[in-house]
Amino acid sequence: MATRNIIEVIGLCKRFPPQRTLKDPAGLFRLRDPKHVLWDISFGIEKGSIVGLIGENGAGKTTLLRILATLLYPTSGSVSVDGLDVVRHDRAVREIIGYVCTDFGLSNQLNALDNLLYFGALQDLPPSLARKRALESLRIVGLGDEADKLVYRFSSGMKQRLNIAKGIINDPKLILMDEPTRGLDPGISNDLLAYVKEVLVRQQGKTVLLSTHNQSAAQMICDSMIVLEKGRLKGVFSRDQLVV
């Protein structure tokens, strides 16, 4: 039977080995404990839902997203996206995810459309499809009229929307968003999140997992919330179960 969950995380642990640096010669030979970032995390996320990943700074949100995005390997446990293991099938996983990260990776010297065409090419889209998807993505995020505008003229809110357009250019089933409202005014961030829910989730049927430490904003739009505390899973809550 096909699973309804697009993300399955079972017993995930992640620890980083101690960093030995030449800046601290004595440290090169000192035995230090590895840094545990995630401990025994298990959860599942249903297709077509929008889920918040909540926690303070250092809770492990970005590490979890990076594991899902195949940028990091888990130390133990299993993580799968749409039934594909993120370690064994990393390329196949990258084909079905869109990653909206905190570093935009946009070129100020290019216009919005050319920035998206660049990422379309990296997503292996043929030129005509890349253009079609780029224009469609710009329209979805409300930048349809700004395609020819150089990115250095964009406001931070427009850049963030372009960043989202970049994350959906490959028409992903799952969109991972790392702090998508960071640096935005509360009004703009609320509008952006409402837009994500209405257009990407409700209209396009995509699944969104977004990390934020703004619990109230997440509570407003998310179907459920995964709460992390110092690398441990505090629980998966419905929007009504969480008290701001």
């Binding site: 990076r66 995005a69 195949t70 940028l71 390329r91 990258r94 084909e95 995810i97 990653y99 990260c101 570093d103 935009f104 990776g105 990422f119 990296l122 997503q123 292996d124 970049k166 994350g167 490959n170």
Partner: peptide, 17 residues
Amino acid sequence: MGHAESVLTTRTSLLEY
């Protein structure tokens, strides 16, 4: 690449890029 997480999560492999 520290500023190119978006590149590393595309279908283009790191070696190819």
